[in-house]
């Protein structure tokens, strides 16, 4: 079979400048959203285990609602809906960052919660027995260990952030996908440009996944449970396999 289609791959290197600019925006968008949702996710996770019922309920609703929405619906809601009601023009890039952060912080909150829950009860009991207050035993004993267990799961979340970030192109952010859409419109070579962009995302995702796997192995060296039963990482993995946190 002969294809009637004439490939014009030479257009891609000619447009490398725009694509690289878009890639830069994608990286900025992802990195910023990742860092912000690391912080917000921890706050939400702490609220979920706070000794104050309304706060717990609020944090629970937060994680349930944001994990039920697709980023696309949320970006539209935020960029058009909320902006119209409050009369604020967030700007495209900022709207993208806010949407990505709010959505992913809900997933990260679940990772933190699972990790904090995986810290052995004995740690807390030992800290209390040594005379530390409840607050102090949490901040100095439980939290540092929990965060350490959470690290691979949190970095894995970056995979989703990078992939999801392509969606903000629909509100006109000039990220890698936004640049590609514009190039397709002007150059009329959809197959060539979307192929290159798809492959670029695959490479990005593979790099992030490799980093997460490396971190998991390095942390795993110190966190295996030995003969005393499953270690924190293993317990965390089982929690994920139960499907409470999408892998």
């Amino acid at each position: 079979m002969t294809l009637a289609y004439v490939f014009r791959w030479e257009l891609v290197p000619e447009s490398a400048g725009l694509l690289l600019h878009g890639l830069g925006v994608t990286l900025q968008l992802s990195a910023l959203s990742f860092v912000l949702s690391l912080g917000l996710g921890l706050v939400v996770a702490l609220c979920r285990i706070a000794p104050f019922r309304p706060l717990r309920a609020l944090a629970y609703a937060y994680t349930q609602i944001f994990r039920a929405l697709s980023l696309y619906v949320y970006v539209l809601f935020l960029y058009f809906g909320i902006a119209a009601v409050f009369g604020i023009d967030l700007g495209r890039f900022a709207a993208g960052v806010v949407a990505l952060t709010l959505l992913n912080s809900a997933y990260m909150a679940e990772v933190y919660r699972a990790a904090l829950g995986s810290v052995d009860h004995g740690q807390r009991e030992a800290a209390l027995a040594l005379g530390l207050t409840h607050t102090r035993s949490f901040t100095s004993v439980i939290l540092p260990q929990g965060i350490r267990v959470a690290v691979p799961g949190l970095v894995n979340q970056l995979v989703d952030i990078v992939k999801d970030s392509s969606i903000v192109a629909v509100i006109g952010v000039f990220d890698l996908m936004g640049a590609t859409i514009q190039l397709v419109n002007t150059e009329r070579a959809p197959f060539e440009f979307y192929t290159v962009t798809a492959l670029t995302y695959v490479v990005l995702i593979l790099l992030v996944s490799a980093a997460a796997a490396l971190l998991e192995r390095r942390l795993g060296r110190h966190l295996t449970g030995g003969s005393a039963g499953p270690g924190p990482l293993e317990r965390m993995r089982r929690f994920r396999l139960r499907g409470e946190v999408p892998a």
């Binding site: 397709v184 197959f191 979307y194 995302y201 995702i205 593979l206």
Partner: peptide, 15 residues
């Protein structure tokens, strides 16, 4: 697993 759904959608539909 590496291709974002939006990119894939455009790729299939247009490319």
């Amino acid at each position: 697993r590496g291709v974002p759904l939006l990119v894939f959608l455009y790729w299939v539909y247009f490319g």
